[in-house]
Nucleic acid binder design. Sequence first.
DNA 1: ATCAAACGTCCCATCATGTGGGACAGCGTC
DNA 2: GACGCTGTCCCACATGATGGGACGTTTGAT
Lengths: 257, 257
Amino acid sequence: MGDDYIVQPVIKALQVLEYVARQGRDVTLTETVHELGLPKTTVFRYLQTLSAANYLEHDVGRDRYRVGRKFRDMARVDQDLTGLRQVAQPEMRKLVDTFHETVNLAVLTDSQVVYIDMLEPDARALKASARVGYRHPAHSTSLGKAMMAFLPDADQRLLAEGMLSQMTFRTLTDAGQLRRQADDVRRRGYAIEIGENEDGVMCIGVPILDRSGYPVAAMSLSAPERRMKPELTTVAADALKGAARRISTNLRSNFSR
Amino acid sequence: MGDDYIVQPVIKALQVLEYVARQGRDVTLTETVHELGLPKTTVFRYLQTLSAANYLEHDVGRDRYRVGRKFRDMARVDQDLTGLRQVAQPEMRKLVDTFHETVNLAVLTDSQVVYIDMLEPDARALKASARVGYRHPAHSTSLGKAMMAFLPDADQRLLAEGMLSQMTFRTLTDAGQLRRQADDVRRRGYAIEIGENEDGVMCIGVPILDRSGYPVAAMSLSAPERRMKPELTTVAADALKGAARRISTNLRSNFSR
DNA sequence: ATCAAACGTCCCATCATGTGGGACAGCGTC
DNA sequence: GACGCTGTCCCACATGATGGGACGTTTGAT
């Protein structure tokens, strides 16, 4: 099939990248040239380009190339997210099967909540408004509140005092009020949000903490407001907290942020 | 400085790759286009190209792209080697300071020993012949023998029955002889090689095993034959074994091969 | 100390090929 | 049934990737 649509420079540059990465040590231009059988000038340019993009690092003094920062960062992010999702998946499944409501998994990026996974009950007619990949403000979602409450004080303040957009008429846009809520959340271990992000929808959110207590992600159960009776809320919150705790302990100890 | 020598297609393709990896989920063509602000056709080609190179994976059914096998493999290899070297470094340092001879670290690739690190004593005039990145046959080095002896039987046989090149007049080129030596090595915990790889140079090699007992690497002390008295050999072998054991336990439990 | 081989950088003319607008078909949606 | 959105495909154009070769510097050998 799509053997057209292949961009030659990209393929060749990736070969160079791969060669460097496979060695696990600093390599020289000529060595790479010999190994790959490409023209010297070409390889030279690719090494420069890859270095400029920080996929490689150019040790100017010794004229050697090695794997760079950007590559490692990307690998780390990928690993963390993949691991998180794998560990969270069975717990999310259980929650969905128990409560028959949508369960979300999200991380915090630039004061926004980014959904990285989502499980929906088959039978319900009402579908979730968010999709995997969507973003919502941190301050208007239970996910965001749950994470915010467990952030170091400086980060928390930064978030609360950022731009607090009004999503619905119920959205809290006062920094002080948000910070007071955060205290409650920390005490209770979960956050609640009722129609603050979207009319008629309520969410219960819990943080997923790494070993050091940092909120690397959050999980929420989201349901139509009228379906969520107060006593059910408590039960669901407890279930979420339990699930989050199990996910935390199952996370690779070296989840990095 | 080198802002020339930048190959545009490569830069742009890497942006696409980065975007996909950062999401930690399956992305669509259009979404990527919107995010990066590049022409649709261009992004399309890059996604195809990256997929063809297995840096991405193209879920044809759902027309989504996600991080691919090759990317993860490279990340893993890089992590493992970097980790190995970091953990091994202080132990190698100690060995060099104790014996004032060259200490090597190597892994096995395609029946060849690849040096991934090397520490030399400052004062000695005689320099090691190998360099980081160089390759030697597995069967003519103590490093190779040390690893071979702890390989699963099938792999071991494969190595012993491959091409056994004659490096010096002492090099063993008989498969049976090599396999018998392997038994000794496994019993003693270290391998010795005297002038089999290079005239006048002897090496003592020990394997570095992961939790499952697989030899992920080997470490050797290499010295001029005449400097290595028999009783010193025993002392050095013990020191090497101890160092290797400590490296093994310090290796991240998830060293993968 | 001397010289040769090897290495990284740079230049430049050539033309392959990357480019992106636009068209098209398939699909889900209102 | 029509619209809008998606991914795929086509094509003419000129950008810019290309690679041979030259140059200055370093490395290593004698």
